[in-house]
């Protein structure tokens, strides 16, 4: 099938369907669409750090994430299946292949370990909670993640906390409801301990 032509046709219909289904939102392409990979990475770097280690509170590090984790979340943003006012405009119009190339690059970047000393009490409580909730059964024993399940070890603590709260409060949507079930009825203190433990995880 003649690819460029069908892509243009598809784009037109997406815009029309978007109008019909989602109100006045007109789909505009991400500034990263069509750029070479190294320039796309610079677009992401503004928030996620030049090497995928995020310097920005509330913004996740992408370095060392499984490629499928990044791919799936980017597609959820692109398809407006995960509501996020910052990321959906960044993902609109990116092709599957562009997203997969970005994901593969970030998966290969080393994730830095946090500088500060962990709090022993929070670490103990967090470990107990991680066992109790069987986090390792999906996220792996070293919390390095696997396929669509993200790496948790050494992720930014503030981001982990924010993500778990959003799952509990049902404000983080998306087709995969697994974490909403897991986070049901968990307390703020427990989330804080889990986030601290995972951010500072040591073998």
């Amino acid at each position: 099938m003649p690819h460029p032509m069908s892509a243009r046709f598809g784009r037109l219909l997406i815009a029309v369907a978007g109008l019909a289904l989602a109100g006045p939102t007109v789909a505009e392409d991400s500034p990263a669409v069509g750029l070479p990979l190294e320039e796309q990475i610079q677009v992401c770097a503004a928030c996620h750090g030049a090497d995928g280690n995020s310097p920005q509170p509330g913004t996740p590090s992408l370095a060392g994430q499984p490629a499928l984790t990044i791919t799936n979340q980017m597609i959820y943003f692109r398809e407006r299946l995960r509501q996020n006012d910052l990321m959906t405009p960044m993902a609109r119009g990116l092709s599957d292949a562009e997203i997969q190339a970005l994901a593969a690059w970030y998966a290969d970047q080393p994730l830095e370990t946090p500088d500060e000393e962990p709090d022993a009490e929070l670490m103990g409580k967090g470990q107990e909670l991680a066992n109790q909730h069987r986090c390792a059964s999906c996220h792996r024993a070293d919390f390095s993640g696997h396929e669509q399940m993200p790496r948790l070890a050494h992720q930014r603590e503030d981001y982990l906390e924010q993500a778990m709260l959003a799952y509990r409060e049902h404000t983080r949507g998306g087709p995969d409801t697994t974490m909403i079930e897991v986070m049901r009825e968990i307390s703020d203190d427990e989330i804080q301990a889990l986030a601290h433990y995972l951010a500072h995880w040591e073998e």
């Binding site: 099938m1 003649p2 598809g10 369907a17 978007g18 289904l21 398809e79 407006r80 299946l81």
Partner: peptide
């Protein structure tokens, strides 16, 4: 999971598809 509905049309030689609905 992808949240889409496609329409595939056949012109006799090849098939093209468009996205009818998304999200």
């Amino acid at each position: 999971g992808i949240g889409r509905v496609y329409a595939v049309t056949d012109n006799g030689d090849e098939r093209q598809h468009v996205i009818v609905a998304e999200g």
